[in-house]
Design a protein around this nucleic acid. Structure first.
Lengths: 197, 197, 197, 197
DNA sequence: AATGAATGAGAATTCATTCAT
DNA sequence: CATGAATGAATTCTCATTCAT
C-alpha cells in the first residue's frame, strides 16, 4: 500500500537529506529553501507542509542527530563496567557512526555554534541526552568509583569530548585520512590516560 | 595630537569591536551592517570607507585573531625546550588571553566552521600560523626527540587542540565558571599525560 | 431521516457560520480557507465541494443577509400605513434581528465597503431589495403623501439609514450596551423628527 | 536648499497619496506594496525606509486623517455657542473637507471596519480626538445646558454621526451627486431636529 | 571621510486551489 | 462527497551597497 502517511514520511526524508547536504556544503545561512526543495525534488510549498521554516528544519535535523548520538553513547556506556571499556565503546560508536554517515555527523558537529534565531544550536538541544552530558556522567562515575583521581568533572569532560570531537573535525577538514574507526581504540586509550592521573 | 590617521583607526577599532560583539551574540549571518554601524556609532556609508563588505570585515577580524593566536602560541613554544613546559605556557597563554578578551576569542574559536561566501572561515585562514599547526609542530618535534612515543601526529595534535578548545568552549557555554587561567596548569598536565604513553 | 441532502446542507451551514465568525473577527482578507475549514470541522478539499472560492463564499453570505434584511424591511413597511409606524416597525425589526444574530448582522453591516476582487461588496449586491433602497422608497412615499415636507429623498434616506446603521455599529463597538430592541422606539421617533420638518 | 529632510518628506507625501489612491480604488488587502511604489515612482526598498509595513502605512494615513478630522471638528464646535450653530459648522467642515479631498476622506470613512492585523482600524485610532467623541461631547453639553431634552447621549451621538457619515457615504457611492457643501445646512438642520425632541 | 536616503535583487513565506486516493 | 499532501504564483520584507551632498 502507498498510503498518504508513507508519502509524507518519504517526502520528509528526502527533504532532510537534501537539507543536510546543502547545510554542510554551503552553510545554513547560505542555503535557500529553494536549494533544498530542488535537490529534494519537492515543491517549494511542500517544504512548509512539513516544517515551519528553514530554522525549524535545521533545528530538527540537528536535534535528532544530537540526541540520537547522546542516547546511543549512553547505551555504549551502560553496557560496560570499567572506564577504559566505556570510553572505547563510546569512541568506537562515534567514529563508526561518522564513517557511516559523515554528512549527518558533520552537520551536527559543525553546527554547534551556529546561531538560529539569536540562540546557538548547541544550546537549544541541551538535553540530558547531549553527548557532553553523557561523557560527563561516565567520567564523574569513574571518579566516584575511584577508578581515576578526583578532579573537576566539568574540566575533565570538556577535555575528553573536545578531543573526540576534534578528531572527527580533523577528518572533516581532511587532516586525517581514511576511516575513523581504525583510530578509535588508540583515541580511547589516550583519553583514558588523560584522566588516569 | 588628533590627526586624521588617529581618527580613522579609532573608527576602525570601534567598528571591529562592535562587529565582534554582534557576530558572537547573533552570528555573522544574522548581523547586519546596520547593526554594526549603529553599535559603533558610525554612519552606514562610513562602513564602506573602511571595509569592502561585511564578509571582508568578518574575515579580517577572524584572520587577525587566528594568526595572532598562532603566532603567539609559537612564541610560547619556542621559548621552552621540553614538551610539558611548552604545553603549559601555550595553554597558559590561550586561557589568559581568553580571560582578557573573551569576546574576541569566542569569535575566533566558534567561527571556524562558519561559511563565508562558499568557504569555511577556518579554511580561509589555514596558514602555517594557525593554532592547530603550531600544536602539531610542537607534538611532532617531541616525538622526534623521543620525549613521547611515536603516534600519528595529526591524531595527537587533534586531541590536544580539541581538548584546549573545548575547555574554552565550556567556559563560553557556562559549564566552567570563573577565570580560565586557574585551570591552565592542570589542563596542560592532562594533555601531556594523554601524549605520554 | 439522515439523507444525503441533509448532510450536505448541514455541512454548508457549518461552513457559513464558521466563515461569518472569522470574517467578523479577522476580516475577510485575513481569513484563510484553512481557518474556516478548521472551525467548521470540514476538510480543506470539502470546501470546494460547496463553494467555488473564498470570494464566492463571502459574497453569497453577504448577499443573502443583505437581501434578506431588505426584503423583511420591506414587509415591515408594507404592513403599516403611516410613516412613524413604518419606521418603528422597520427599526424594531433591524434591532431585534441584530440582537438575535449579531455576528451575521455585524458581517453584513461592516462589509459594505470591503473589496472583493476589485469591487465593493455593497456594490455587488445593490439590488432593489437593499435596505437603503427600502428606506428611500418609504421616505419618498411619505413625501408624496405629504406626510413630511419635500426634500431630497436621497439625502433624507441617507441620514435615516446612516442613523440606524450607526446605532448598530455603536453596539458592535461597545459604545451602546445591552439589547438594541429596547432603543428601537426611541430611535424611530428621532428618525421621524429628523424628517418631520 | 534641497536638503535630505526635504527629499524624505517629499517621498513620504508621494507614497501616502499613491497609497490612498490604491487603497480606495482596490482596497487595502488588494493593494500591493509594489503598486504603491510604482504609482509613487519610488523604489520598493524606499517604502521600508519610511514605513515598517503596509499595515503601518495604512494605519498612519488613517490615523492622521481621523485625528485631523476630529481635531478640526472640535475647533468648529468650540467656536460656536449654540447647538444648531455648532452642528452647522461641524457639518459644513466635514462636507467641504470631503469636497476638497474626497480620496482621503473616502479612505478614512470606508476604512473604519477594515481589519489590520486582527484589529479594526477604527478601533485602533479611538482617541479622544475621534469624530464620534467630538459629536458626543457637543451633544452631551447641549443636554447639560438644557438646549435639548435629555436622552442617552451615546444613542443620540450615534444617530447624528451616522447620519453625517452616511450622507458622505452616499456621495461616495454616487447616490448623491455634486458638491456636498450645498447640503450642509439642510443636513445640520435635520440633525438638530432629530435631537430637539 | 562622513552621511543616510535610495536602490532592487533575492529570500522567506503564504495560501487558494488541485487531484489522487 | 471527503480527504489532505502537493503545488507554485504572488507577496512581503530584508539588507548589502551606492552615491549625491
Amino acid at each position: 500500500m502507498n498510503t498518504r502517511a508513507d508519502r509524507a514520511s518519504e517526502t520528509r526524508y528526502r527533504i532532510e537529506r537534501a537539507a543536510i547536504k546543502h547545510f554542510v556544503e554551503q552553510g545554513i545561512g547560505e542555503t535557500t529553501i529553494r536549494d533544498i526543495a530542488k535537490t529534494a525534488a519537492v515543491s517549494l510549498g511542500a517544504m512548509y507542509n512539513h516544517y515551519d521554516s528553514k530554522e525549524d528544519l535545521a533545528f530538527n535535523i540537528f536535534r535528532q542527530g544530537f540526541e540520537d548520538a547522546g542516547r546511543r553513547l549512553r547505551k555504549c556506556a551502560e553496557a560496560q563496567t570499567t572506564l577504559p571499556n566505556k570510553l572505547r565503546d563510546m569512541i568506537r560508536f562515534a567514529f563508526s557512526r561518522f564513517d557511516e554517515d559523515p554528512l549527518l555527523l558533520t552537520y551536527v558537529f559543525t553546527s554547534r555554534h551556529i546561531h538560529l534565531g539569536h540562540r546557538r544550536l548547541g544550546r537549544l538541544a541541551d538535553s540530558p541526552n547531549n553527548p557532553y552530558a553523557v561523557f560527563r556522567v561516565v567520567i564523574a562515575d569513574a571518579m566516584a568509583r575511584k577508578e581515576i583521581p578526583n578532579t573537576d568533572p566539568d574540566l575533565a569532560a570538556s577535555l575528553v569530548t573536545g578531543a573526540v570531537i576534534q578528531a572527527i573535525d580533523s577528518c572533516i577538514l581532511g587532516r586525517l585520512k581514511g576511516k575513523m574507526i581504525k583510530r578509535a581504540d588508540e583515541t580511547a586509550a589516550m583519553c583514558f590516560r588523560l584522566l588516569k592521573g
